[in-house]
Amino acid sequence: MSPTAPTTTSLSPDWPCQVKSPGSRDWERTATRWLRDLLPARYAGYSPLVRHHVLLARHAQIQVQHEIRAVRVALQTSRAELPTLGVAPAVIENTIRMYAMELEQLGRLARGVRLVMEALMDDGPTSRRTTAQRR
């Protein structure tokens, strides 16, 4: 196997299917596209996030964490607050199920972002420099 050939290690089940395996051709491009899609559109023009993939991953991680907190609050307050808004009991139950499913999805996203961020850090120039310094 040549030193530039992609590794064939198995990926975690939490690895996003939209992102190619680390080491494969264009994997970083697919990772940054996926990470950008997790952020509000207005962030696409911020040059630090566009130029520095690890910063993009960090911001996506923070964004997903905030979404998790928001959904948890919505879930925890549904039974108390939705009736006062005139929402029917059946709709409240469906809303609670929706929030629970969204929390699961956000948990998977958070794990995926963490994995992609770690892979980007492993592939970055600082990790190579650190590895070379240890030798």
Rank of each mutant, 00 (worst) to 15 (best):
A110E: 13
T84A: 08
L115E: 03
T84Y: 05
L55I: 01
G23E: 00
P125F: 09
S78C: 07
R128L: 11
V71H: 00
V91P: 02
M98I: 04
E118G: 09
A132S: 10
G23F: 00
C17F: 08
T130D: 13
R108G: 06
A41I: 10
M101W: 08
T4Y: 13
A44V: 08
V64K: 02
C17A: 13
E81S: 14
R58T: 15
P83R: 01
L39R: 02
V91M: 10
Q63N: 11
M98L: 14
D26H: 10
A100C: 08
Q76H: 14
Y99R: 10
H52C: 10
L82Y: 05
R29E: 12
M117D: 09
A74E: 04
T130S: 14
I68W: 03
T7M: 10
Q63V: 07
Q65D: 13
T131M: 12
V50A: 14
R33I: 14
V116H: 02
V116D: 00
P6L: 06
R33C: 09
Q105H: 14
A100P: 01
Q18C: 07
D14Y: 12
Q63P: 04
R97E: 09
K20Y: 11
I96S: 00
D37M: 07
E102S: 10
V19F: 04
P3V: 10
A80F: 04
E104R: 14
M1W: 07
R114K: 14
D123F: 09
L49F: 13
L106W: 03
R29W: 07
L82H: 03
L55E: 08
Q18K: 09
E93V: 03
T8Q: 13
H66T: 09
S2E: 06
R33M: 12
L109I: 14
Y43D: 01
T131G: 10
A100K: 09
W34N: 04
A90W: 06
